[in-house]
Amino acid sequence: MDREQTEFRLSLLDAQLAAAERAQEVTALMLAAADMQAVAELLGTSEAGSRMVLDTQWWRLTKEAREHLADEAERLRHELRTL
């Protein structure tokens, strides 16, 4: 993966992790029929990040899944530092 792809993947993981940390707020926003832009604004992410959040399956909110996402994000951060 090149630097641009790694940064993009990391931005998606960060969006998912932010959504998991604020799951109740994201859920309330989704139930209020907000659009992707509202989710992006709530989480401070891009449209791609908000789409990733809205497409996230519920099992990704489990503790084990969140730990896996955090581990992958940390691995990508390390990879970016070495590029």
Rank of each mutant, 00 (worst) to 15 (best):
D2K: 14
E4T: 12
Q5H: 05
Q5R: 13
Q5M: 05
T6D: 10
E7H: 03
F8H: 14
R9T: 13
R9G: 02
L10Q: 02
S11K: 00
L13N: 02
A15D: 00
A19L: 04
A20P: 01
E21T: 10
E21P: 00
R22S: 15
A23K: 15
V26G: 00
T27P: 00
T27H: 04
L29F: 02
L29P: 00
M30N: 06
A32Q: 03
A32R: 06
A33Q: 13
A34Y: 09
D35V: 08
M36I: 08
V39C: 01
V39A: 02
V39H: 05
A40I: 08
A40D: 04
T45L: 05
S46D: 12
E47Y: 11
E47M: 10
E47W: 06
G49V: 04
G49R: 04
G49P: 01
S50A: 15
S50T: 03
M52R: 14
M52E: 13
L54H: 07
L54M: 14
L54F: 07
Q57G: 09
Q57T: 07
W58L: 14
W58N: 08
W58A: 14
R60Q: 12
R60F: 10
R60H: 13
L61Q: 01
L61S: 09
L61Y: 15
T62Y: 07
T62M: 05
K63P: 15
E64S: 13
E64T: 13
R66T: 13
R66E: 08
E67L: 11
H68A: 14
H68M: 10
L69G: 03
D71H: 08
E72V: 15
R75Q: 12
R77T: 10
H78G: 08
E79I: 04
E79Y: 00
L80R: 00
L80P: 05
T82P: 01
